[in-house]
């Protein structure tokens, strides 16, 4: 590799040889190999760290609302996947859950304890406690979810 040095005056050739010198190549190789290993290991390592969201959302979600937090004749909004849901405890104590997106224009519905209806404030749409549209503009019933109680946790899942 150093044979070029024996011919004086050829600075270009000497430069190329310097470039090829073992030290530079070794340095370049070792740093970039190190960099590559890091840039592969870093994402892989971060990948294996459990993410903040815990586990993958499935067709079922466990609500942060506990059974005892939900008084009879009241309702609360929760996040079901990417969409809002509403869980209602009827006056008789049953738990029911529906999609909280009004079927009219997509506002989020709420529970009205005075009339015991699920109610959309935007255009005064009423749904009964089976999710049926009973008054006002909503064209369709609310999509119903299945509610199960596990200990004091409420588990809502799609479909039966």
């Amino acid at each position: 590799m150093a044979d070029g040095l024996t011919q004086p005056g050829q600075s270009r050739r000497r430069f190329v040889d310097w470039l090829l010198s073992r030290t530079l190549t070794t340095w370049l190789l070792s740093t970039s190999v190190g960099g590559l290993v890091l840039s592969v290991l870093y994402p892989a390592g971060r990948y294996l760290v459990p993410p903040a969201a815990g586990e993958s959302a499935t067709a079922a979600v466990t609500l942060s609302i506990k059974t005892e937090d939900l008084a009879p004749n009241s309702g609360q909004i929760f996040k079901f996947g990417n969409r809002p849901g509403i869980v209602v405890r009827t006056a008789s104590g049953d738990l029911r859950a529906f999609s909280a997106t009004c079927t009219h224009l997509g506002c989020i519905v709420q529970y009205r304890s005075d009339v015991s209806h699920i109610w959309c404030a935007c255009h005064n749409g009423h749904f009964d406690l089976n999710g049926l549209n009973i008054q006002g503009p909503p064209p369709r019933p609310l999509e119903a979810f299945t509610v199960n109680v596990r200990g004091d946790e409420i588990v809502v899942s799609k479909g039966a």
Binding site: P43, A44, S56, T58, A59, G81
Partner: peptide, 21 residues
């Protein structure tokens, strides 16, 4: 069938670098 789609959604969205993998 219930979880496959959601788990990949989870990989793509929640897991760090999951989208990359």
């Amino acid at each position: 069938a219930e979880d496959a789609y959601e788990s990949i959604q989870f990989i793509m969205a929640e897991v760090q670098f999951g989208w990359l993998v």
